[in-house]
Design a protein around this nucleic acid. Structure first.
Lengths: 214, 214
DNA sequence: CGGTCCCTACCCACTACTGGGTAGAGTGCT
DNA sequence: AGCACTCTACCCAGTAGTGGGTAGGGACCG
């Protein structure tokens, strides 16, 4: 059970409970070595830069700097360290955002202890690990992304405003455009998306996460 | 430090990490006695019914039976036991729902260990404990609820449709009404709510949970 | 340099929505 | 019965959005 060299792990989570729990769980395994814990991104970075651990277990929901944003910062501070995300949610956005930024894995906090250990071992060995269900989410996400909205940046911006009920005039005012221009964009968007009503636009905007997630 | 009789506590949380973390934290205090842990409501109930602990620490987010629903069940199974809710979120709905059902306290999982201990002591002594910020939320909630939307059922229904961008005609079709009637409702809603644009209606509908939470 | 795309902006006729009314039928309360 | 309220529905004049065009300037690419 202890043939491999020990895996060094740093824990970053703003919940003391989770930190304690993780430490307690991981310390029962001889081949896993918790070399530091941090309650926020910055102290975590300091530890990671000094220790260059094999793995950073990074909570996704943290105040100030979120775990997602922190991925790239950790990658710079300790390039050889693998990032394993910890989350309460199997949210599409979080998962794909993590993968895009270079995380090696994404595990949900409610999985059995053994799965967490398995994930750490897999990622330390250079692999990737995603909790059951997470892979499906990624596949779904990829599909959605591939035939993502075939509209331009400006149009996407206009769509976001339209979707929350703003009038052409309001949008024109906000973006410092002529009302006529907004109308043109609106027409183009509808033509490109093959819809004719505002309700359809709203629906599409919500589906694609354009509305500011109230 | 150990003059008081020990406080018996049962932990119920579907996250093994949180259970371990809580146990680790609480066991460092001599006057707190973790007499059982459970990963779901049902086993927690069995323990609580047998042990009649002073306090049940109950996670709010659990599959099948949520912590909120569990409050009343625990109250029945062990009437003398105080319920202290644990949550990741300072959500208005959760907090007020917990209070209404008889929880003695509500603490957020990201508070310092000392605050958790303090909460347990306070609740064991017959008091109530709410994490900083939670009280404010309760006050807010009361206000919001009291002057909730002053519109009729029918108007609320129309508003939900309007807020997702449906046209008067579409709504008339869906509800089997004359377009004129929908327009009248629309006017009444705007007058009652004191707004003039569709964007305002959308905003209000979202704030009050009328939009079907996509 | 020519082609393509994006962003901007306008014209025109048509349709939808707005905001001001009024009003009848039904319900519930006193 | 009288009153308040809700839901329904219409009229009218004004404003906003729609759907069909066209078009110039700028960026990018071969």
């Amino acid at each position: 059970m202890n043939r491999k060299p020990a895996i060094s792990v740093v824990l970053v989570d703003n919940h003391p409970l989770v930190l304690e729990g993780l430490r307690a769980i991981l310390e029962t395994y001889e081949h896993i070595n918790v070399v530091g814990t941090a309650g926020a991104v910055q102290p975590g970075l300091d530890i990671a830069a000094r220790q260059a651990p094999d793995i950073v277990l990074l909570d996704i929901n943290m105040p100030q700097i979120s775990g997602i944003e922190a991925i790239e910062i950790f990658k710079k501070a300790a390039p050889s360290t693998k990032i394993l995300m910890l989350s309460m949610h199997d949210s599409r956005e979080y998962i794909s955002a993590s993968v895009v930024r270079g995380a090696s894995g994404y595990i949900l906090k409610d999985v059995p202890n053994e799965e967490i250990i398995g994930a750490i071992e897999t990622v330390a060995a250079g692999g990737t690990y995603f909790s059951t269900g997470v892979s499906d989410v990624l596949m779904q996400r990829k599909q959605t992304k591939e035939n993502d909205l075939p509209i331009t940046t400006r149009e996407r911006e206009i769509l976001a405003h339209l979707a929350i009920g703003r009038s052409n005039r309001e949008i024109a005012g906000l973006l410092d455009l002529s009302v006529a221009t907004v109308e043109t964009h609106r027409k183009t968007i509808k033509r490109k998306l093959g819809v004719s009503t505002t309700a359809d636009l709203t629906r599409i905007a919500i589906e694609h996460g354009l509305t500011p997630a109230v």
